[in-house]
Design a binder for these strands. Sequence first.
RNA 1: GCUGACGUAGCUUAAUUGGCAGAGCAGCUGAUUUGUAAUCAGCAGGUUGUCGGUUCAAGUCCGACCGUCAGCUCCA
Length: 632
Amino acid sequence: MSQRIALTVQGVAIEVLPGMRPYDWERTPDDAVACKVDGRVVDLKRPLEQAGTVEFLTFDDDEGRRVFRHSSAHLLAQAVKRLWPKARLGTGPALEDGFYYDIWLPEPLQESDLERIARTMAEIVSEDLPIERVELDRDQALALFSERDEPFKMEIIRRLPETATISTYRQGDFIDLCTGPHLPSTGRIRAFRLTSISGAYWRGEETNPMMTRIYGTSFPEPGQLEQFFERQEEAKRRDHRKLGRDLDLVSFLDDAPGFPAWHPKGQQLYRVLEGFSRDLQQRNGYQEVSTPWIYRVGLWQQSGHWDHYRDNMFVIDRDDQLMGLKPMNCPGHCLLFGAKTRSYRDLPLRLAEYSPLSRYERSGTLHGLFRVRGFHQDDAHLFVGEEQIGAEMERVLELVDIVYRAFGMSYDVVLSTRPDDYLGDLALWEKAEAELESVLQQSRLKYRVNPGDGAFYGPKLDFHVIDALGRRWQCATVQLDFQLPVQFDLTYTDPEGKLRRPVIIHRAIMGSIERFLGILIEHYAGAFPLWLAPEQVRVIPITDGQAAYAAAIDGALRERGMRSTVDSSNQKLGYKVRTAQLAKIPIMLVVGGRDEAQGTVSVRSREAGDRGPQSWPDYLEELVSLAAVPLA
RNA sequence: GCUGACGUAGCUUAAUUGGCAGAGCAGCUGAUUUGUAAUCAGCAGGUUGUCGGUUCAAGUCCGACCGUCAGCUCCA
């Protein structure tokens, strides 16, 4: 005598018998991978017992994709167990664009084994094994995985709360400990590829046994897999380490790991980027300073870096004194602020600095321009009164927007709030967080909140830019700091003549300029827009009869601040065009006898190709305005 | 730092089981004077990452170190 229950499925109200599984429902879409019942992601085979809402998830939803990838990891593990019955399972989660499984194996795996594993996976897919959830209590679960000789799984179970219901998933003879959810059957995973293997410690600890980590990715349709790898290839083509070398921008010397060596073109690019930031900040009330880069250890003790950041600092021992190279500018700026009495009339005081910073990064973490040991930031510290936080943050947000828009990049924001181990006044924290949130709301930016992820000294905003390939990079960070002013006993006099404590806003927009340049190289695939390009124009005389004319054109360009060269090599036009094209120079000005006679230049643009002759002095003006820095 | 792979000319790369380090591009010289993605010829370029070992003989095998790459870890 069962009562029907009321469900809202994809917005449609229906009534069904309790115990109905979305999997059995005739209107469930074929491409559904899981569903959301009252906001919780569950298996399509989970029986519905009470009224609620049901939404279907497909591969196109983030959560659906995770389910799909997670089931793919199980598929991988099952194949490995078939091939190596002695394999012991670790964990196998979904990743942003794939999955992995950590497995202990009696002998190391070779890359060539991946093909065998993939073949076995394909067999399991074609068997289309149903995937079933089975819930156990703790003792049953321990007994099961003890019998199956899975010590890592037993360790996981032992770490779970005593009373926890433990879920397992089964497909054929394969059983895994897993909270799920999962696909209904293995046949859904129609396209997958194993990509690499590497070592990884059990639970990430160096003292634990080394597992073999097998990486792969998977999709519902083979076409999507192809597309994914085309994208990977494109990313590889854009790799800034390769482009940096091919375009003669930057290199890395074996004798200075982690410190980029900028070649003339790279340095030019760097200077344009830094100049862009400098001009922008100057217009916005920032004052540039340059503070020492080596301080006695006492300063670092006062700032707290010695306790929290020492392992990442380069330390020098001279004359029985320890000195540290600065990893950040904040202490220097605090010293400047504190060097004289400050009044509320000085606030907000915006100190900007571009000096070199050094951080000791562990050797294995170095990565081209993305992770270096020596770099510069478009750094600034804003000393503000508590009541100025909101307005000042608004100004910062505007600057961030100008910078990223200049590169045609969109971005989103994460607000990280008070962690458990916060320092300072709770009321101030709450007020500041509320203000940050209201500024974000007014800005109509896309943002999300990451509760408890702020620094111990204040809440922060992290900005993620999205590049031409849709990849996200964390660049700007804006952090409120209630602690450092205390550390340095910073004060200012308010209108009533009372001493008050300022708040510091740490902010960088590009972040590390080196890293940002790396991102830009990949974003533009080395084809920089005119205003950024290290070599903006190449003048190409067709024969050496036009040498003087070409030199005059080049000279006029330089006179107007354009970065131009002449290709006077003894080559045919086609060769010179090709060379300039490969060097990704935005504008080529071909000058032949006809041009010289008629006072024209034949314009070729990197993107649009031959654009025909243009009359010369006019085109110079056009070029100059095209090359303007996008400051507003 | 840890695990694994790799390191040959500026770049891309070749070199049977250990047996004379070879090419293309770039560079230089000469010829060619050319109208929108590669003109021809010649020349030069190497202590095969470094140091040590095995061997009649090492780019190749072994060890240590340095660096790079893929991950791990780290990133107040």
